[in-house]
Computed example of a mutant assay.
Amino acid sequence: MKVLHNFKIVYKNGTVYDMASDFNVLVRSFTISSPSPNIESETLDNGDGYIRMGKTWGPRKISALCMFSAVDDYDYALLVDKLFRVLMSRDEYYLISDAEPWRRWLVEISSEWSADQLGSSGEFQLSFVSASPYAESVGSSLSNFTTDVNLWGFGNGLFAEDYQYVHTDKAFHIYNAGDATVDPRNKPLKITIKSKKNISKVSIELYNSTTKDRWTYTGSMNTTLPIVIDGTRTVRSATSLTDKTNYGLITLAPGWNSIQVTGEEVAEVSFDFRFYYL
């Protein structure tokens, strides 16, 4: 029977380590804390209580209780060394739980740990922290949405819809299945705009009537190199075009976003982003 507490470590370069199959580790528990609320407030002069200014979410904590069995003392020491080498990376890496293989957490170890040895077996507790309060989808909006790709599952905000993230129409909807607004100032979002023809000067616009965000561009377009709104920058290949825009950004609220495109020269617009979950 598959143990759903098991998890994988995925480095940013794509290297994957499975706690069960690579280290013979049994993950006895895998616990994700709730978001940590940061309530912003101002105190009252000569008054009781405070004025609530808003709320933000702090980092998330994840803990795992693990045990393993080695062949002998030499094998025990080698296995512990291997775990140290993989887990104690200087860089962050992703954790993917077998219970929710379609979500991943960007984490790092937050405290030291050691294994309690009993014969050739060991037990240890791992504490991780995610700087973001959100898990993110393993797949992106441009991934295949069929069930056979194992990128999507129950609880991911997806239903029996025909989700489209590449459009040739001038008005369409973009669905954000997550709990958080995708804001390119703090979450990756790439919008690619292809042209029908080569033209030296044109004015185009993207408008999200759901969020009231507007992005405009005035300049040249060609059929070979698309214009890309990549995060907070607008580029064509390696050339920055940000100074030819209104410095606007398009954000995507949770749920459906209504997008309008102005400019007859626009042939296709695609949205590439992940979904973020509390």
Rank of each mutant, 00 (worst) to 15 (best):
Lys197Ile: 11
Ile9Asn: 07
Ser89Lys: 12
Leu95Phe: 08
Glu112Ile: 01
Ala64Phe: 03
Thr223Glu: 14
Asp162Phe: 09
Leu278Ser: 06
Ser34Phe: 11
Asp243Ala: 13
Met1Val: 12
Pro101Thr: 03
Ala238Phe: 13
Thr218Tyr: 05
Asp45Pro: 10
Ile32Gln: 12
Arg85Asn: 11
Asp81Cys: 06
Thr15Gln: 15
Lys2Phe: 10
Gly178Leu: 10
Ile109Asp: 07
Pro59Tyr: 02
Pro37Thr: 07
Lys55Ile: 15
Arg185Gly: 01
Leu118Ala: 12
Asp169Lys: 15
Ser209Gly: 01
Ser237Glu: 13
Thr234Arg: 05
Asp73Phe: 11
Ala253Cys: 04
Ser111Lys: 10
Lys196Arg: 15
Thr31Trp: 00
Phe273Gly: 03
Val16Leu: 12
Gln117Met: 08
Arg90Trp: 06
Pro133Phe: 00
Ile39Pro: 04
Val16Met: 10
Lys82Ser: 15
Leu118Asp: 14
Ser121Cys: 10
Leu142Arg: 14
Asn176Pro: 06
Ile193Asp: 04
Asp162Gly: 05
Gln117Tyr: 03
Ser41Tyr: 13
Lys8Asn: 09
Phe271Lys: 03
Arg60Ser: 03
Thr245Val: 03
Gly231Lys: 04
Ile191Arg: 02
Arg185Tyr: 00
Leu44Gly: 00
Val182Gly: 04
Tyr207Asp: 07
Met88Tyr: 09
Asp272Ile: 05
Trp256Leu: 10
Gly54Glu: 10
Glu108Gly: 13
Ile51Tyr: 09
Ala64His: 04
Asn24Cys: 11
Tyr76Val: 02
Leu118Glu: 12
Gly49Lys: 02
Phe84Ser: 09
Leu278Cys: 01
Cys66Met: 03
Thr223Leu: 09
Arg185Phe: 02
Thr218Gly: 08
Val27Ile: 11
Ser89Pro: 07
Leu241Cys: 03
Val86His: 07
Ile193Val: 15
Tyr134Ile: 00
Arg28Leu: 11
Leu65Ile: 10
Gly255Ile: 04
Met53Gly: 09
Thr147Trp: 12
Lys2Ser: 10
Ser240Cys: 05
Phe145Tyr: 15
Tyr175Ile: 09
Leu95Asn: 08
Asp148Ala: 11
Phe159Trp: 14
Ala99Phe: 11
Tyr217Gly: 06
Tyr163Ile: 04
Val166Leu: 10
Glu108Ile: 05
Val16His: 07
Ala77Thr: 13
Ser120Trp: 06
Phe273His: 11
Leu106Ser: 08
Trp215Pro: 00
Ser143Trp: 10
Ala238Tyr: 12
Ile191Gln: 02
Tyr11Asn: 11
Tyr163Arg: 07
Gly122Ala: 06
Phe84Gln: 12
Glu161Ala: 14
Arg90Cys: 08
Arg85Pro: 00
Gly231Tyr: 02
Phe124Pro: 01
Arg274Gly: 00
Gly122Lys: 05
Ser143Thr: 07
Trp256Gln: 08
Thr147Pro: 15
Trp152Ile: 01
Pro35Arg: 02
Phe7Met: 02
Lys201Ala: 06
